[in-house]
């Protein structure tokens, strides 16, 4: 019984939240890694892109809510998601036309593009502030729980409850669909194949008649979709606060680099590595240890390795270890 309780506590406080968080990070890291692979720079504006896409989604969610349109038990935000993606896509294509294309034509070195993306980050951040302000917004509706902790306790008779928030389940389902679509697109369609070819060897791709501008446009569209989905899922799960999205940049970059910049598969793996490490290292293990260990060995304190405020330190430490020992990441990215 104690063992079961320990497993349930572990699932409830570590595995389930970390999996949802990992899926959100993975979607974010996919966007970063695609831009790195095709456009060859680290996009510092990615966090704010996520915030912008989410902002548009929230506006449409509110509009639908005021019209009385809803998806029943599912959050209305899912209905608004395509509009958010469209909004983000428009913004990104506009940015590419006005800002990035000039530097591409010049064949500017990557670090200049990174600095340019810093400027873009300021602008996006300002836009989000203009539109929705800096306060926290909650826009989730529909059922909050698939199983609440109390129902689970009554059902199983265990001391520990296992709560499964609907946003967590939706995160996983939506992320799985998005990733499946992305991989189908990259591996099966002509455009997807041309994107991979462009990423592998630009000159060879150009020689075989691939239109680079088309590849770039498609990349921005995909990135806009991924960023908006990631942002909306994160916002549904944890509430939307523009500044938090900027701070997500670090774990997202860590995930992309750990997986290997430029490798989509790596980005997904990296997202989960970072999420699990963050949650496990900042979780207070006292409860689980209390069930598993004999009373004499029970820890006095919280048995927490690091306080939750240091979760950035975890992504950072993993990042440093990977950079030192395996700079190309787990899945052999492009960078050296």
């Amino acid at each position: 019984m104690d063992l079961l309780n320990a497993i349930v506590a572990l699932l409830n406080f570590v595995i389930v939240p970390a999996t949802a968080y990992g899926a959100q990070l993975a979607l974010g890291a996919l966007g970063v890694t695609l831009i790195y692979g095709i456009l060859r720079f680290s996009n510092f504006a990615h966090g704010d892109t996520m915030a912008f896409g989410t902002t548009i989604t929230i506006l449409f969610t509110w509009w639908f809510q005021s019209l009385g349109v809803s998806l029943g038990p599912l959050p209305t935000a899912l209905l608004a998601l395509p509009f958010g993606i469209a909004g983000a896509a428009l913004l990104m294509l506009g940015t590419d036309r006005v800002v990035y294309r000039f530097y591409r034509a010049q064949k500017a070195v990557p670090v200049i593009l990174v600095i340019v993306s810093m400027g873009v980050m300021f602008v996006y951040n300002g836009l989000v502030r203009f539109i929705i302000g800096v306060d926290e917004q909650r826009f989730d509706d529909g059922d909050r729980f698939i199983i609440s902790a109390r129902d689970f306790k009554e059902m199983t008779g265990l001391d520990e409850g296992l709560a499964l928030k609907s946003t967590q389940a939706i995160t996983l389902v939506v992320a799985a669909i998005a990733v499946a679509l992305l991989f189908w697109f990259l591996n099966k369609t002509r455009t997807g194949k041309s994107m991979r070819a462009f990423s592998d060897n630009e000159d060879l791709a150009l020689l075989s008649g691939i239109n680079p501008e088309r590849v770039v446009v498609v990349t921005w569209l995909i990135v806009a979709a991924l960023a908006t989905v990631a942002g909306t899922l994160y916002g549904l799960d944890k509430g939307f606060k523009p500044f938090v999205y900027f701070q997500l940049l670090l774990p997202i970059f860590a995930a992309a680099i750990v997986g290997g910049l430029g490798s989509p598969l790596g980005a997904i793996a990296g997202g989960f590595v970072i999420a699990y490490s963050e949650v496990m290292i900042t979780y207070a293990w006292k409860k689980v240890a209390g069930y598993l260990l004999p009373e004499s060995l029970e820890p006095d304190g919280l048995a927490q390795l690091l306080s939750t405020d240091y979760k950035f330190a975890v992504s950072f430490a993993i990042l440093v270890v990977v950079l030192l020992f395996k700079p190309t990441g787990l899945f052999k990215g492009q960078s050296v």
């Binding site: 990174v114 970059f253 950035f312 950072f316």
Partner: peptide
Amino acid sequence: KTALGLRSDYLAIATLGIAEIVIA
């Protein structure tokens, strides 16, 4: 000591991280 000598983007991300940690 850790991040110099790697790509310039990596130094950027490492410094971004250390700044957040100092504030934490």
